[in-house]
């Protein structure tokens, strides 16, 4: 037994060091180099630049509260969409805090004149707190509010919203969805 222990000392130490250098430094450094060469934009976080300034990432949701923009989902991170500290709400389905929060969000949405059953994504927080997407239904029901705030014809805003819907890959992988930040950027570019 002590003989086994003695013979194992050197390989245990030396192989750990060798593997740490290979897997902990060489591998991630090489991958970073390859990533920067092949896919520079994506390796750097799919950042969106507007006149040289970063306005966000195409992959990360943002907080929208103005009536002029499509709103994303409620977020449980920090003050909402805190991309430096991702988090879900972790509330149980029968937590009092969940029911009260949902009631408040429903009341706020109803104020803009929306009737009927609301799509679930619009009144629930995502897992990441950074969900960039909402469902097509959650997008379409916001169109009248935005058309009014921007004094645009509702059918033009609806056409833009419909054109923003992404469909599942091969009809199977993923869900129909709309990237709220991308849609709002397109909205800002619309001429009256």
């Amino acid at each position: 037994m002590t003989e086994d222990l003695k013979t194992a000392l050197r390989p245990a130490l030396m192989l750990l060091i060798a593997f740490a250098l290979l897997l902990g430094l060489a591998y991630p450094l090489a991958m970073t180099g390859i990533g920067k060469v092949l896919f520079p934009t994506r390796a750097n976080g799919s950042l969106i630049l507007e006149r040289g300034k970063v306005v966000g990432s195409a992959l990360i949701g943002q907080s929208f509260t103005s009536t002029r923009y499509f709103h994303g989902r409620p977020s449980a991170t920090g003050d909402g969409y805190d991309a430096a500290a991702s988090s879900g709400s972790n509330l149980a389905p029968n937590a009092k805090a969940l029911i009260e929060r949902t009631q408040a969000d429903i009341a706020r949405i109803r104020e803009s004149g929306v009737t009927g059953d609301l799509p679930a994504d619009l009144v629930t927080t995502s897992a990441s707190g950074l969900d960039p997407h909402i469902s097509p239904e959650a997008t379409f029901l916001q169109v009248p509010r935005i058309a009014e705030a921007r004094e645009l014809p509702a059918d033009r805003v609806m056409a833009l919203a419909k054109a923003s819907v992404e469909q599942p890959l091969l009809g199977l992988i993923g869900e129909p969805r709309v990237n709220v930040l991308m849609l709002n950027r397109a909205l800002d570019r619309m001429r009256p």
């Binding site: 879900g88 799509p119 994504d121 629930t124 927080t125 969900d131 960039p132 909402i134 869900e175």
Partner: peptide, 11 residues
């Protein structure tokens, strides 16, 4: 129709 979406991402 979307199911229990609390704590789930749309994509």
């Amino acid at each position: 129709t979307l199911g229990n979406m609390e704590g789930k991402d749309v994509r």
